[in-house]
Structures are given as structure tokens and as C-alpha cells.
Design a protein around this nucleic acid. Structure first.
Lengths: 245, 245
DNA sequence: GGTAATGATTCCGTATTGTGCAACGAATTT
DNA sequence: AAATTCGTTGCACAATACGGAATCATTACC
């Protein structure tokens, strides 16, 4: 038993609630009970309590159970407190320590991807990049991530504003590449001698909220198999609001 | 005891969860315990179970408790079952493309009108408006729409909670105005330099289910004759469940 | 229309398990 | 350094959740 110090009945009940959330719609009691390997009577009592709390309701005709209005309210309350940017910023030192690389956090500002946070690793890197720097969409790892995860209208406006003329097919290829790899990367494109990899932090709409970028003088980090890239992707995935699997 | 046939411990625990949702942010254990008149040790064990389920988490530094990611997912699951919201959210990109403006979708949460979706258009970004933002009833276009289409009891409670003292006649005038125009609007009231128009999505009982809002830097959109306002009204009318005339 | 079958709800004795109080540890303040 | 505040954990007792079967309600089938 991997105990957490809580109540066993509560743990069971929450398992049921979680199971209910995984169903796409109303469920019968027995079906729900079978899905969590519990006797129906037990589940029924849980549901009775959930029902008085408004977390679940039952369709009057069929007697099936479904999530209730309180579940929605709870979610809205949770959504109101979610500050993905700050959570990411707080966790940035961990990533930095784990990978041994300098990490930076960028969000979409009026002028495009904008650096809002630095976390320097031990091996210092001299760079002209400072807080508030805006990154190019194509020529930077950070920009590529925003490029691949932002609405097309936003991207098109920014690309024309950047002035540089890129063939549309080239841009499309780059986007597809970032999507399939799960990260953006450059090696010396922006600053000679410097390589960078970047991954997105997504919100509940699967829209990009921020990009986290690792910088190194070693261009070997620009690889799918690099452990530091895996760490970066795991880091961002953990901070993103993920739909139940 | 007014029993509901459920488990007493579960009822207590859900009371705690509900209390937690009513706080605007992280809470200390003792504060939470006091608010529900329970011994701290009892509440602590509940929270331990909630924590393993991911419904609550505690801030690593201060040890305060707050709603966790599972609460958000539960809310998203509940939201996914609301047909009207689904249809509106799915159609939102169309409205965005049609008007060229940023559109957002709000529903009524415990804290008031809450933004649950936003669809960005090219151009500008509003960094202060994110998912989960709650809108004021008077000072926002979104809020005005809820103000004019919600039960008076709900509105009164929220207005007093907002603290601001408005003359009743002013509120009544505003409601009448929103009703006759068919949309709510502000120009720079909430965020300087930003104008917004908002229209309701109604269910079969003519109660408001959600509000759709368009925002722009051009205050000219705040007009009955503006084509984008017409598009918004048509959009919402099409999504509302209409009574046969 | 009667009967079978599926599913929701309730009953009941047992022992599992949640409860309150108080002690402990940690962290911050005076 | 002492004191205060807060989060966490033992402990003994009895309250209460558990599981299986019985009951009620509703739909399907002949």
C-alpha cells in the first residue's frame, strides 16, 4: 500500500470521481463500478455524497450519472488561480540544475517572443541577450516554438512585420518539423558558437503560453536523443495543462 | 441529521473542498479548518487524500494549500459535456476570422463571469486577460451581458460581493440598455485603450449560458451599426436555442 | 399482459477505519 | 534564545464504511 496519510474511503471515492471524468458522457452505476473494480453498493454511496455536493447529478430519465455543475465551478475556480507563467518561472531553477545549462523563459509580447526570465547555469555564457529581448520567429529556437504553436493569423502578421521574405513552403516545413520533434532548435544561427533548444508550455486550450529554452556552447544538444532535450520536454509537458489521457 | 444516504466522511471532505474553492487563492490549513469548523487534523487528512488525487496541491515554500491540476481537469471534463458551450467554442475561430478581432468566451463561475476560451486575432495582445480571468459585472462588456440576463438574486449577491456601490437606478438603466441593444459594450473602462462588445448565448429557457466578447483597440466597434457587432449578434443568435416564434 | 432480466437502492452485522486530542517538529518572530 | 504559530503524526476508542444479498423500479422479451 502506497499510503499518503489520507483517508482510505476518500481515496476510493476520488478514484470513482476521476473515473467518471474519463467517461465522455453519462454512465450507469454498474458500468462505473466495474471500471474501478468496486462493488456497486460502495460506488452508489459515494455517488450519493457527490450528488449532494453537486459534483455529480443523475439524468432523471435513465438514472445514469454524470458530472454536475459543482464540478464545472470547481474547475473554473482552479482555472482562475492557474498562473502557468509564474509556475514555470518558479520551476526554472530546477530545470537549470537538472541539465546544467542556462535556461530562459519567453512569452509572446507585442513585438513577438520576448525573454522575461533568465536562469544562469554555472558555466557562464557571455551574450548580448538580455531581459526584454525579442526573438526572431525563424532564426531562433524560441521563435520556432511560437511559430509552430500560434494561430496562423498572428504568425502571418508577425512574419511580414519582420520583413524577411521566407518561402511559404519553407515555413510550413519548419512548423511540421517542430511539431513532430516536439521542440525547436538552432545551432549558431542566431549567435555564432551558441546552440539552443526550446519547447512550449501549453494551456488548457492547447495554445502556447510560454517557451522554455536551453542554451549551450555545445551544439550536440541539438538532438532528439540528447538527455537534456528529453528533460526539457518532460519539464514543459509537466507544466502544461494536459487533458486526461 | 439531514442524511443524503452517502458517507459522512465524504460529505465532510467535500465541504472542505468546496470551502477551498471559495477562497480566492492559497489558504493555510488552520484558516481553512476554521472556516468549516473542523479540527485541523481532520482537514489535514482530507487534504492529504485530495493531494494524492491531484485535486489540491501545496505551495512548496509557504505550505499553503490550493486547488490542483486535477480540479482543472475535472472542470474541463464537466465543460466538455455542456453542449452549448462546446458548440460555441468550436465556432469561435470562425467569428474571429470573420471579424478580424480577438474573441473570448465566458461562462458564469462562482467568482462571476469567467473567461474559458480566447481566440487571438493578429495584431495586439492583452496580457492581463487570460484563461480564468473573472470580469466585473458593471465595468466590462462581458459582465454587462451576464448582468442583464441572470436572475436578480444571483446578480445582487455578486454586486454586493464586488463591493462597489452602484445606485440601483443606474444598474437598472444599464440592464435596460443592454436588453434593447442586444449587446453590452465598454470603451476603455476596464483596460485603457481597449474597447469591447459582448453578446449572450441563451438556452431554451432564455437563460444565459455563455457570453461571447470581441475586443479591439478601435473604439468604433462600440456601435449598433458596426458590421462586427452585427456579426457578433448573428453568431450568438445562431448558437442560442431559440423558442419557436 | 405476463415474465424475465437488468439496474438502482437499501438493509444489516462485523471489524475496519476515521476521529479528536495531544504531543512533536519546523519555521518564523520578538 | 525563547516564544509563538502552524503543519504533521501517534494513539485508543467507537463511530462508521464495507460487502453481500434482498428489494424495488424499469425496461425487454415472448
Amino acid at each position: 500500500m502506497s499510503e499518503g496519510g489520507g483517508l482510505q474511503s476518500l481515496d476510493s471515492a476520488l478514484t470513482v470521481l476521476h473515473a467518471m471524468a474519463r467517461f465522455p458522457g453519462p454512465v450507469t452505476l454498474t458500468e462505473l463500478a466495474r471500471s474501478v473494480n468496486m462493488p456497486a453498493s460502495k460506488v452508489h454511496r459515494y455517488l450519493a455524497s457527490f450528488a449532494t455536493a453537486g459534483l455529480v447529478g443523475q439524468t432523471s430519465r435513465s438514472g445514469k450519472y454524470d458530472l454536475g455543475p459543482a464540478a464545472l465551478q470547481l474547475g473554473l475556480a482552479a482555472m482562475a488561480r492557474q498562473d502557468i507563467i509564474n509556475r514555470t518561472a518558479d520551476a526554472l531553477p530546477d530545470l537549470c540544475a537538472q541539465t546544467g545549462l542556462t535556461a530562459l523563459l519567453s512569452v509572446w509580447g507585442n513585438a513577438g517572443p520576448t525573454v522575461v526570465r533568465w536562469e544562469r547555469a554555472a558555466g557562464f555564457i557571455v551574450t548580448t541577450l538580455g531581459l526584454g529581448t525579442t526573438m526572431p520567429l525563424i532564426g531562433s529556437a524560441t521563435g520556432q516554438v511560437f511559430l509552430a504553436h500560434s494561430p496562423v493569423a498572428v504568425i502571418k502578421a508577425k512574419l511580414t512585420a519582420e520583413g524577411a521574405a521566407y518561402k511559404d513552403s519553407v515555413v510550413q516545413d519548419l512548423i511540421a518539423q517542430v511539431h513532430s520533434a516536439g521542440f525547436g532548435c538552432v545551432a549558431g544561427d542566431l549567435i555564432p558558437g551558441l546552440a539552443a533548444v526550446s519547447a512550449p508550455v501549453l494551456n488548457s486550450q492547447n495554445h502556447i503560453e510560454a517557451a522554455v529554452t536551453l542554451i549551450s556552447t555545445d551544439s550536440a544538444i541539438v538532438s532528439k536523443d540528447c538527455p537534456q532535450v528529453s528533460a526539457l520536454k518532460a519539464f514543459c509537458a509537466g507544466l502544461s495543462v494536459q487533458m486526461p489521457v
